[in-house]
Write a protein that binds this DNA or RNA. Sequence first.
DNA 1: ATATCTGCAAATGGTTTGCGGAGGA
DNA 2: TCCTCCGCAAACCATTTGCAGATAT
Lengths: 134, 134
Amino acid sequence: MGRAGQRVTRQKKLILEILRSTNTHPTADWVYEQARKQLPDISLGTVYRNLSVLKGAGEIMELSYGSTFSRYDGNPHNHYHFVCEKCGRVLDVALPVRTELEEELALKEAHLVRSHRLEFYGVCRDCLEADRAK
Amino acid sequence: MGRAGQRVTRQKKLILEILRSTNTHPTADWVYEQARKQLPDISLGTVYRNLSVLKGAGEIMELSYGSTFSRYDGNPHNHYHFVCEKCGRVLDVALPVRTELEEELALKEAHLVRSHRLEFYGVCRDCLEADRAK
DNA sequence: ATATCTGCAAATGGTTTGCGGAGGA
DNA sequence: TCCTCCGCAAACCATTTGCAGATAT
């Protein structure tokens, strides 16, 4: 924040706080509902606008998986995700980031590789546990 | 194909052919435009319906990256992609698929890991070349 | 003071779907 | 024949945007 021409508004601050205080990778709509508890008159358009600004500033990440909508992550450092195909949750993954994959690709195909994204799909521990209990 | 209750129509066959004959990972709209050259009366709705069916049958893959629209890949076997942030193309990557990552994650977090997806982002060889020529 | 941001509401655009008729098995 | 698929067009829905007033700096 603090980039030239960018103002610090109550709305923007709140949205960033909400996103940083959870690890559930929420949708824009969920962020909107949370924000309304503090600022009842905030609009969904403002939420989308600020999510876009924060993303551009590198403060948050947008996660667009198979779904028809995006999820947002308050942790802007590259890390991997696991998508549970049963409960739909998106979980953080504790594996280290493999930057060497980028180098390997750059070497092999002569592209300039700036970043990469890795997601896993399956059934999460909790859903497996729930199945076992039945 | 040939699954119970699934008919082989001209439209479905054509869409699969189109997708298999290119490695450009086209959008639904591009497939539609190509298909119209053979079947001028085909509708966009039919293209979407068949893309969905073919995906469900494991004949093709849907790629949904940051964009607002999907791309489709006629190669249903897992492989990685490179997205050029300059020209927007999606290119196949020649790196081998790292299934060991799935095992590593399963071991570490006790999830059932079924698959993974890896994408690289940057500037492709051709765009670098074009820049250099200026 | 003034340029950026907000709330509101309408527009956008990729994708989905209901319907009655066509055509594959 | 019969049931699935098609073309058409309207509906859907997450996201974006134009505008006039509010607000951060």
